[in-house]
């Protein structure tokens, strides 16, 4: 994501300094994302300890197979992202485009499965604020679904941002401006994508399995 004009920006001493700066910049940005998601996950965990039975019962209403499928899809997209970074380093434009497209495809599949899940919850009248009808679990179940929708919508939003950035990468790769001398944009996007995968790795057991 650093400057697009020639590889070396004017205010850096050498290309290595620029690359270290870009990599460090993304890692520090991921630090803020850890605290951002940390706040949301901490809210969920605190409420889980306050209302253990209701959260467990409400958690069983989520479909475990779809959650597992999503986890597998996202891990595979992490693999394809890593392979696209390898392709960028080796300068193989065709394979880079292929792996990037695969990653975006898997990302879209993930969002699709997520949309299906949300629709089924909408159909069962479990969306808080919209059509939540409390059943024998009482009002606290709405709190569970509020946390569930907050966490998953935040995660989906980050996925959409990741897909948008990858769209830009595909265009750059198509124009041949990504290669062994300019692979940082791919690597930095890879770091971001792996982080989004790690967030889901934690969300999946917390929401679906416990």
């Amino acid at each position: 994501m650093s400057s697009s004009a020639g590889a070396l920006a004017h205010h850096f001493a050498n290309i290595h300094q620029q690359r270290t700066a870009a990599r460090l910049g993304m890692w520090i940005f991921l630090l803020t994302e850890v605290m951002f998601f940390g706040g949301a996950i901490a809210t969920y965990c605190i409420y889980r300890t306050l209302h253990p039975y209701v959260f467990e019962a409400a958690g069983r209403e989520l479909s475990k197979p779809l959650g597992t499928l999503n986890t597998v899809v996202l891990i595979t997209s992490s693999l394809t992202m890593a392979l696209s970074v390898v392709a960028a380093h080796s300068g193989n434009r065709r394979r880079l485009l292929g792996w990037l497209a695969a990653t975006m495809g898997l990302g879209l599949v993930f969002l699709g499965v997520k949309a299906i899940e949300w629709y089924t919850e909408y159909a069962h009248h479990r969306v808080p604020g919209l059509n939540f009808t409390p059943d024998e679990l009482g009002p606290t179940a709405e709190l569970f679904f509020a946390c569930y929708f907050a966490l998953t919508s935040l995660h989906a939003l980050h996925m959409i941002i990741g897909l948008a950035v990858m769209g830009v990468l595909v265009r750059l790769a198509y124009q041949g401006r990504l290669g062994p001398e300019r692979f940082i944009p791919v690597e930095v996007t890879g770091l971001y994508w792996h982080f989004v995968d790690i967030v889901w790795i934690f969300l999946f057991p917390l929401l679906y399995l416990l």
Binding site: K64, L79, V86
Partner: peptide, 30 residues
């Protein structure tokens, strides 16, 4: 400092398989 080349494909695939196994394990454990 990072010496500017990526890991090998074989390494990534093994890590990928390990992640799948762990996913299966956590689902089974639940």
């Amino acid at each position: 400092g990072h010496h500017d080349e990526a890991g090998s494909v074989k390494l990534y695939v093994t890590i990928f398989v390990a992640l799948l196994v762990l996913t299966a394990a956590t689902v089974a454990a639940s």
